[in-house]
Design a binder for these strands. Structure first.
Lengths: 189, 189
DNA sequence: GCAAATTAATGATTTATTCAAG
DNA sequence: CTTGAATAAATCATTAATTTGC
């Protein structure tokens, strides 16, 4: 009957359980080898691919954050409607921001770590998102998995570095008043 | 000297030229096989990997759009400051939107198309972003390249479907008033 | 009880934003 | 300052829950 076996991955209860357990124990953005492992382990309980694991963590993280935001938002709204304070400040354009942190991308990227040093900052604890702010040192641990997939036979010539070209269309750089970013003033009320 | 041969890709002039030419002739989000081809071709002029091509198109597309937006934005601002009309409408929270179109993701995803039908909608013309709105039919042409990279030996057992678990923490569904999306009301002025 | 219709949940893609190398 | 690289946010689309009329 299932001639169309569904276009998308349907996690089994065990898979879900394990994933959630991992999330609870701190896994957020597993790198390639971690994903490989997880996938291997989960594949015992049903068909699954690395991308499913990757997407699951992405989505789960995002949606947990979203829940938090919503909660905060409603809290703030209550609070401010009670106090009748001007609540223009903490923008709730969609929801409230969960962590006003610098937001360094300190977690290993979702990509393939070919032969890096593999810092392996998994199982770093159970802290929620707003925990780090420190160790912005160990970055770069990862190379895009695009690598693996896009890899092309190295028929690469010795880097000719030819004559110069107008390779950069430096015609129109800044349109508005390019101070830093977001030049178009928005909060004008 | 170059013991650290630079952590990131440095496009040679020829590579850039070719990429820009491709962009001009309509390529926006090449799929895996296209990227493979492009990479192969460009690798003649220097070391390059698929992910570089992938990222280049992503960034170039985004930044062209950004330029456009900025241009529009400043235009509007001039226009409206001249007319002194209330310009709350066309939100310029960051910049101005370039195309208020339905924005279906009608382009092939950046991922690996393993053995799909390969519609190959490259070289679709020279239209800028705002061209489609139609052919929302040919989707799904692509499978995440994550696939290729994350692939794990299929040791997958026959889907046991075990006993039941509380796999879903259905404790808190809606936080605010979940009408559809974006529950936290924002435009309250 | 059961399927069609509706809604909610969530897997998969695309776009926006951010970081930092050069 | 430009731009390659990476991540987060927004969005799309499909599956599962749920409701509703019979």
């Amino acid at each position: 009957m299932p001639q169309v076996p569904s276009t998308r991955w349907c996690p089994t209860p065990e898979q879900l359980m394990i994933l959630e357990e991992m999330y609870r124990s701190g896994v957020r953005t597993p790198n390639a080898s971690q994903i490989q492992q997880i996938t291997a382990r989960l594949s015992y309980y049903g068909r699954i691919e690395g991308k499913n694991v990757f997407y699951w963590f992405q989505n789960h993280k995002a949606r947990e954050r979203q829940k938090l935001r919503r909660r905060l938002c409603s809290q703030y709204q209550l609070l401010y409607s009670a106090n009748s304070l001007p609540h223009h400040q903490f923008y709730c354009s969609q929801e409230a921001p969960v962590f006003p942190l610098p937001l360094h991308h300190a977690t290993p990227s979702p990509f393939l770590l070919q032969d890096a040093n593999s810092v392996c900052k998994m199982e770093a604890g159970d802290a929620e998102e707003a925990s780090s702010t420190s160790d912005a040192t160990l970055r770069h641990e990862s190379m895009a998995m695009v690598d693996a997939a896009w890899a092309v036979p190295p028929c690469c010539r010795p880097l000719r570095t030819l004559d110069l070209f107008p390779t950069k269309s430096t015609g129109l750089k800044d349109e508005c008043s390019t101070t830093s970013k977001s030049s178009c003033s928005s909060t004008t009320n």
